[in-house]
Design a protein around this nucleic acid. Sequence first.
DNA 1: GTCTATAAGAAGATAGAC
DNA 2: GTCTATCTTCTTATAGAC
Lengths: 211, 211
Amino acid sequence: MESLSTKERILKEALNLFSVKGYEGVSVAQIASAVGIKPPSLYKHFQSKQEIFEAILKEMTARYRRQAAVMEMNGLDARDDKGLFMEISEVQLIEMGKSLFRYFLHDAYMSKFRRMLALGQYHDPALSNLYIKQFVDEPLAYQGMIFGLLIQGGVLLPEPPQIMALHFYAPIFLLLTLCDCHPEREIEAIEMVEQHIRQFNRLYQRNESSR
Amino acid sequence: MESLSTKERILKEALNLFSVKGYEGVSVAQIASAVGIKPPSLYKHFQSKQEIFEAILKEMTARYRRQAAVMEMNGLDARDDKGLFMEISEVQLIEMGKSLFRYFLHDAYMSKFRRMLALGQYHDPALSNLYIKQFVDEPLAYQGMIFGLLIQGGVLLPEPPQIMALHFYAPIFLLLTLCDCHPEREIEAIEMVEQHIRQFNRLYQRNESSR
DNA sequence: GTCTATAAGAAGATAGAC
DNA sequence: GTCTATCTTCTTATAGAC
């Protein structure tokens, strides 16, 4: 139950390489070497380098969908657990942001996938769509919905929730990009995520009267 | 005074290609073809493909430095024109954000340079540093300074200016990334920049008493 | 399924005529 | 400074033995 099939190991090592050097920057010989086999053996598992790439894309998309439910802001479904969100605290809000940040940055697959999408946009235009959908549009839409509920519940100021989501998520997105380039600044970045959310909370909860 | 030297045309066309397809994705034959010459002729102007790349990097860095003074938030130097900033209005704030957005997105060199840095990070680690410096650290530092002055002047709420700068700039950064991938969403993005800044202004100027 | 050997082509770069 | 012709190396991919 520990061992991966050769096919799976090829996908794993190829993703490792693509996420660091980009599709064009990696040769099939490098992938084979990382797996511990010779290049011709790769072609018993995949018909081409492109097919390896597409298999990664397919698997990561499936993985994202599977984890989406778990994700949904750390197991909270905004529609079903309306009551839960109505009582959201600053601590919960901070935890929501930090866990989102850590998931995108450290989840073994998600972090590599995000880098591969960012680096591989020129190779396959479909990557741009996927990148923006998963790391911009979907987070903003989901958080916008949550903030909409929190406004209805009188927890937050009655400001447009889409922009509120932008204010919440964009700093996290920027700090993720920072950590991708400079992993050594992660501690600083996490500290900023926390300060950001505290300040966000002070701004949007400032009028406590309606609660 | 209109015509560019062959050397300059090589740099121009190479940047065009690198910014779209990445360093590894572009061959010297493609660069030569774009210029209208044959590959061997390139080598009379540059010793290698890598040297072309480095020349672009050098010229763009110089260009950025030259324009930095002009840039500084649309000609305003925060230190010298303290008084000017003390009287900043919402309209000015919006114009500051929009012009920053448009400059990064549309300036013929800046936009290509930004894309080249984003795509080429794996090829040359120095690009990561430059990218983060120019498009994360410097904008945040500069805007943090401005907001610090505006807080001193009693225009804005007394919140940490670094996080305030993050709140101001991160949405612009995210929307730039969006437009890089999906140019057709630029109108939507500019609209969001404006809404974002209006909302930013409402949040941070909410206490008008101290002015 | 893995290997060795090898094909077929594209890449970066050079030699030397004009 | 541009060209044609060529070199070398690397790349993706296949053939066929084991």
